[in-house]
Design a binder for these strands. Structure first.
Lengths: 132, 132
DNA sequence: CAGTATCCCTTTCGATACTG
DNA sequence: CAGTATCGAAAGGGATACTG
């Protein structure tokens, strides 16, 4: 069996394309994965540039897919927290190679990560060092 | 260091979203990866439903990104072959976990893979068996 | 605070006919 | 065969104002 001939069916991909091709879906997944629990406005802030409409819609789709869990508290002012489900965590893990591939191609992007905590940036650099 | 707290920066993701959010990009990558070299009309046929315009445009972008190589032969009728570059092969490898995640979620999709060669389907089943 | 409702612009992409 | 040209429909998504 040739080493570089690992064949995969593209049919499952068709299904997932709709999900991850949503401009913000993977970003939300990753942000929640980084932070654990976040409130609506916290996600808005973390994903600089997303509109409340888009965030709201995308979160609903992610919930429908069983990737994100929503918990609301009967308080005033209202409080709602979002986090990944186990499935969401798995998805996030499965895109890490993709992240690494991207980072490896354009390490220039690392410098633009002003919205990322220094700890994450440091870890990225370390990961890149290991891989190269 | 908590085990489930592997943090990743989302900035590289922003860059890749544009690429993979193209409806057909990953499908082309994977099809080429499965088959090695393919001609324009072969890709058209493999990706049932894509229009020549969309295929042409997407192939150009993938070439511009250095993921796909194009080789044309001065023959009549003309012949052009596409294949993955090394970078393209790497990208394809990096999305395999994503494919596996998707396949694991909805093994029902496996049954709809009528366009896939039986050998690929068999391999998918085997891979699923290993993972579960 | 956590969304929803509107408006509108842009991009995407399918269908089809045509060309070197 | 390997595309290109043109048209149009549809969806994505931003800005903003508003509501429970």
């Amino acid at each position: 069996m040739p080493k570089n001939n690992h064949q995969t069916c593209l049919c499952p991909l068709k299904g997932i394309i709709d999900l991850i091709s949503k401009k913000w879906a993977l970003l939300i997944i990753n942000t929640l994965g980084n932070s654990g629990k976040l409130r609506f406005n916290q996600i808005m802030h973390a994903l600089d540039g997303i509109s409340p409409k888009t965030l709201s819609e995308t979160l609903k789709e992610l919930q429908a897919e069983g990737l994100v869990a929503r918990e609301s508290f009967a308080e005033i002012p209202p409080r709602v927290e979002y986090c990944l489900t186990n499935d969401g965590v798995d998805l996030r893990k499965s895109i890490i190679p993709l992240l690494e591939w991207t980072a490896k191609r354009s390490s220039v992007d690392q410098k633009r990560c002003e919205s990322c905590p220094p700890s994450i940036r440091a870890r990225n650099q370390a990961n890149l060092g290991e891989k190269n």
